[in-house]
Simulated assay, not measured.
Amino acid sequence: MNLRELLLRTRSYRRFDESYRIPEAELEALVELTRLAPSARNQQVLRYIIVSDKETCDAIFPNTAWAGYLKDWNGPVSGERPSAYILVLKDRDLTSNLYCDDGLAIQTIMLGASEKGLGGCIIGSFSKQALLEMFNPGENYEALYLIALGKPIETVVIDEIQNGDIKYWRDDKHVHHVPKRPLKELILTKNDTP
């Protein structure tokens, strides 16, 4: 699979086959990929807590919020919830500024998951305090993101933006649609700039 195909497969999945358990070794392999990614000033300030057991996944789930644009959906139901999580932390003793490390690391994890036939969702809306209390990594760690992972059971497609609307949506067959801007809107020419 080439990079374009991998990127097309790397979507935000929010419904999973919860019975499929991801082995801890696979989660460790995803974190291992982040060691190979670039890091601003090569400081490597991110740390990770990996969760693969059902009991801890069940404890994490109530502390998450899902799909803000889908107002009539409260998140995945039992049986469709993530079977693993990776909590992404910043070591404040090493830096106060991430620059771009978080984006590079998270995309690396997501691409690695897609390559393995898994899917994920990067969650920024979760109870950071509750998870810090649950795992107690130390006062120098700040919770940044939670990556939900599992075997996807939904279809996610990319659409062209219609009427400037960027909000993702689901159709009556539960296909998840993600509008993307056209390339001509992203690349500025000298005629577009002041």
Rank of each mutant, 00 (worst) to 15 (best):
Q107H: 11
L144D: 02
M134Q: 08
A130S: 13
G119Y: 00
Y145A: 08
Y145T: 13
S127M: 00
A148V: 11
N140H: 08
E154C: 11
N136G: 07
A148L: 13
S114M: 11
F135C: 09
L144T: 06
L131S: 09
N136F: 04
K151F: 04
L118K: 00
G112M: 07
E139S: 15
K128I: 05
G124W: 04
G112L: 02
L146C: 09
E133V: 06
F126V: 06
I153N: 05
I123V: 14
I147C: 10
K116R: 13
F135L: 07
I109A: 06
L111E: 14
Q107V: 12
E133Q: 10
E115P: 00
A113V: 08
I153G: 02
T108V: 14
G119A: 08
E115Q: 07
K151V: 03
E133G: 11
E133D: 11
I106L: 14
L146G: 04
G120R: 05
G117E: 04
A143H: 06
I123L: 14
L146P: 01
I122S: 09
Q107S: 15
A143Q: 05
F126T: 00
I106A: 15
K151R: 15
A148T: 15
P152D: 08
F135W: 04
T108L: 11
S125E: 12
I153Q: 01
L111P: 03
I106D: 13
E142P: 04
L118Q: 00
K128F: 02
F135Q: 07
Y141A: 01
C121Q: 15
L132N: 10
S127W: 02
E133Y: 04
F126P: 02
Q107N: 12
L131H: 11
S114Q: 08
G138H: 05
G117Q: 04
E115H: 06
G138K: 02
E154F: 10
L111W: 10
F135D: 03
K128Y: 03
G117F: 00
P137K: 00
I109W: 07
E142S: 15
F135E: 08
E115L: 05
S125P: 07
P137L: 03
E154R: 10
G117L: 03
I106S: 15
L111M: 14
E154L: 08
C121K: 06
E142T: 11
G119P: 05
S114G: 12
E154N: 13
P137E: 01
Y145W: 07
L132Y: 01
Y141T: 04
M110I: 12
A130G: 01
P152Q: 04
I109D: 01
G112D: 02
K116L: 13
Q107Y: 08
M110G: 13
P137T: 01
L131M: 13
Y141R: 11
G112C: 05
L131E: 08
N140R: 11
I106R: 12
I123P: 08
K128M: 11
I122K: 13
I122C: 14
E133K: 14
I123H: 02
Q107G: 14
K116W: 04
A130R: 10
E139L: 15
N140V: 06
I147A: 04
G112A: 09
A148N: 14
C121T: 09
Q107D: 12
I122M: 12
I106V: 15
L149R: 03
S127T: 00
Y141G: 02
N136W: 01
G124F: 06
G119I: 03
I109L: 13
I147G: 09
G120T: 05
T108D: 06
A148P: 15
